[in-house]
Design a protein around this nucleic acid. Sequence first.
RNA 1: GUCCCCAUCGUCUAGCCUGGUCCAGGACGACGGCCUUUCACGCCGUUAACAGGGGUUCAAAUCCCCUUGGGGACGCCA
Length: 460
Amino acid sequence: MSIVTRFAPSPTGQLHIGGARTAIFSWLLARQAGGRFVLRIEDTDTVRSQAAYTEGILASMKWLGLDWDDEPIYQTQRFDIYNKFIDSMIENGTAYWCSCTPEEVEAMREAARAGGTKPKYDGRCRERGLGPGPGRVVRLKAPLAGTTIMDDLVHGPVAFDNAELDDMILRRSDNTPTYNLAVVVDDATMGITHVIRGDDHINNTPKQIMIYNALGFPLPKFGHVPMILGPDKKKLSKRHGATAVYEYEAQGILPEAMLNCLVRLGWSFGDQEIFSREELLQHFSIGSLGKSASVFDNEKLLWLNQHYIKEADLDRLAGLLAAILGERGHAGLDAGYLKAFIPLLQPRSRTMVEMADQAEMFVADEPALDEAAAAKFLTEETKPHLAEIARIFEAADDFQQEPLEAAVKAYLDAKELKFKLVAQPLRVALTGRTASPGLFEMVEAMGKERVLKRLKRVAG
RNA sequence: GUCCCCAUCGUCUAGCCUGGUCCAGGACGACGGCCUUUCACGCCGUUAACAGGGGUUCAAAUCCCCUUGGGGACGCCA
């Protein structure tokens, strides 16, 4: 049997990294087996759902390279399907109408809590044989005794005492289906073979298994993956910083770094840290998923990102960088120039935004001069040398790193001066800063005209 | 409160299923050093963990139990 997995986001917010990781695992499981990976938008919460979020989630999926089969399914378009199945449950006696009001049910729960047991509906309408009516809901006639066992792909068998569960609502008084019912009907009718989701859904599973049984559907395999926590070990939330995938994209994180980072949270393959998409497809195994929650480490993401930046294709980086620089007012940059200095920035950038920060010194007409640096290095003692170096550069017809460096060294040797004397002054003159890539590689990348202009600006 | 899940360096983890090869390995970080014209890259090294207690066993990070801690779920949200 071919594998079919799904990712079922609720469009009440952007795709966050926890959801993204679940999606990655599902995608990997299906793709490595040549199976299908489908999307279902759980938009039944009409108050909080927004079409813009759906678009954002799909965009983040594409960014991460998680492609899906078929068109996404929207739950709001399937209400009649859900109702048809609920009706069949009423007919076969696995569900019943209930006239209890929310207030009455709440009172039952309160009483249970006071009695020290699990809050639940007491099933008083189970055998009343009620029919439809205003304000009435349909409930599952759940087994009263026994245990429901879920054989989880990552946790192994987990048993639940049926007495712990109550007769959950399947259809609300406004005729809409509840989450657990919709999920079961969807997963079953969509032919999902492996349900991969966060382990905050473990307690939903026995309820859903009861619905599968009541409907006569075969059970899929369940795999509950551990959650991602913030540095304080609490459920990841906005106060921990960026949680949405698109925010990382905006920070200049490369998708392959994000993917690599996320997949290693809860999963590992020996001591390997770096995984290409192909290696992931080759080595991923749901059986080697861990069971414990993990803390998202931004430092490791940055390390991974720098690794991928160092390996990335120049044309791609040039495109990415030009976009960021464009937003900062540097439009129409020459691609050739970008590609000349990007290699110097690659080992110095953990994100594309960091690269852009440093690229400013290459693309600005007149890079901002760090005042303290200028005062310290652009002195009466050093300026004459800078002027002389400018003359040497001007005379050079081979504007390459090596001959230029040799020429400057020859000049210094002749005067019995140390290179250190002019190194920082030259750097400040060229970039306005005290930290930068190597001097002569920058000189070559900037080109004669730009270099001379900058030297003359400070040395007259 | 009730139920469920989880538990190895600060963090991600290997090892656990199939006890001995583990005075516990790798990676990120931190710290130190090398390289060096600055900053990085790179290279080398150091730091640091089997939550606690009981068992079982010749032998336990590995198996069992309890405790503790953390997380999650208990909704006419998803």
